[in-house]
Computed example of a mutant assay.
Amino acid sequence: MNQHAKAISFVLNGSKTEMLVQTHENLVELLGRLDLYGARESCGQGLCGCCTVIVDDVAVSGCLYPAAFVDGKTITTIEHLDHDVQLSPVQQAFIEEGAFQCGFCTSGFILMTHKLLEQKPMPTDEEIRDYLAGNLCRCAAYPEIINAVKSAATKMART
């Protein structure tokens, strides 16, 4: 084994996974090696939210999160939100409300919206803006994103 590599095991989207990671590798790079590209590195500084991944039920910036730190943890990516090929209410609301343009930031917004609605099932506009403040949309689809969050909240309240 390379002296700069470490063997780790973790649960990824419900499946036990074992990998050899480089000590300098971040979580986005590790996910890319597993053909999961929903979390994207954009700013490389944890400021834009494009690289959002859920680790042990906490949203993290995958561009700053060392891959070796997921050893023994549970990871959820955007690719795992649909169940039995059915979109989650949040994913469906983002589509219905047109809450994206280029789509580069969308997976981060969707994951953060899931976390928000777990904590606040019916958030106000101010609570939505505050919670999603760490996610940036360069296309400025913010009004549609706010509408999508409110729509998703309503959908989830019905179920």
Rank of each mutant, 00 (worst) to 15 (best):
M1E: 12
K6V: 14
K6T: 15
A7N: 15
I8T: 13
S9E: 14
V11L: 10
L12R: 07
K16R: 13
K16C: 09
T17I: 05
E18A: 15
M19S: 13
L20I: 14
L20S: 15
Q22Y: 07
Q22L: 07
Q22M: 04
T23M: 10
T23R: 08
H24R: 15
E25T: 11
N26P: 13
N26H: 15
L27C: 03
V28I: 15
E29D: 13
E29Y: 03
L30G: 09
L31K: 06
L31Y: 11
G32F: 12
L34W: 02
L34C: 08
D35E: 15
L36A: 04
L36K: 08
Y37C: 01
Y37L: 10
G38H: 06
G38D: 10
R40E: 02
R40A: 04
S42G: 13
C43F: 09
G44N: 09
G49N: 10
C50I: 00
C51L: 10
T52G: 05
I54C: 13
V55E: 06
V55Y: 05
V55W: 06
D57L: 07
V58F: 10
V58H: 12
A59Q: 04
A59Y: 02
V60G: 03
S61M: 08
S61T: 06
C63Y: 03
C63R: 04
L64W: 03
Y65G: 01
P66M: 02
P66E: 00
A67S: 12
A68D: 05
F69E: 08
F69P: 00
D71P: 05
T74V: 12
I75T: 07
I75C: 05
I75G: 04
T77A: 06
T77D: 08
E79T: 11
H80P: 02
D84A: 06
V85N: 14
V85E: 14
Q86T: 12
P89K: 07
V90A: 10
Q91D: 03
Q92K: 11
I95P: 00
I95A: 08
E97Y: 00
G98M: 02
G98H: 07
F100L: 13
Q101L: 11
G103W: 04
G103V: 09
C105D: 01
G108R: 07
G108C: 09
F109G: 01
I110C: 01
I110S: 02
I110G: 01
M112C: 15
T113C: 00
L117F: 06
L117A: 04
L117I: 07
Q119M: 11
K120I: 09
K120H: 08
K120W: 02
P121F: 11
M122V: 13
M122W: 01
P123Q: 06
T124D: 15
T124E: 15
D125P: 00
D125N: 08
E127T: 07
I128Q: 02
R129E: 06
R129S: 03
R129W: 00
D130H: 14
A133M: 14
G134K: 12
L136N: 04
C137L: 13
C137N: 11
C137F: 11
A140L: 00
A141V: 08
Y142N: 02
E144F: 09
I145T: 06
I145L: 09
N147G: 09
N147I: 03
N147R: 14
A148Q: 01
V149I: 00
V149P: 02
S151A: 14
A152M: 10
A152S: 12
T154Q: 06
T154R: 03
K155W: 01
K155T: 05
M156F: 01
M156T: 01
A157G: 13
